[in-house]
Amino acid sequence: MWAVLILTSVLALATKLAGHYIPGRWLSNPRLQRINALIPIALLSALVVAESVTNKTKLVIDHRLAGVAVALVALFAKMPFPVVVISAVTTSALIYHLH
């Protein structure tokens, strides 16, 4: 746990510092910029899936997916962020206990 915390923090700061010291033209390659812009989208998408329907290496459908489905509805309804998370949490807890 400490290794994750410390190395993530060191690498995060190193990345930020690199940006402040490297001249901008080094990364002006449009292909690199396109990929960089898409990385957060691909990773966040993967994280949503990993956290809602997987357990280790198995695909599992349980209370979490129900919560995320409700969050999706809340997002479509343009609800603010706290409402999105709370609606997911409440739904998931309800189903967990009813099950």
Binding site: A3, L7, T8, G24, L43, E51
Partner: peptide
């Protein structure tokens, strides 16, 4: 980082996912 740990991933997987997500900060810095 905490999401990968929560889903049972290794420390290396957690650190690399977090670092890849942070690469955009380098572009902001530039």
């Amino acid at each position: 980082a905490v999401g990968v740990v929560a889903s049972g991933g290794t420390a290396a997987a957690a650190i690399s996912a977090a670092t890849l997500l942070g690469t955009r900060n380098a572009l902001y810095g530039m």
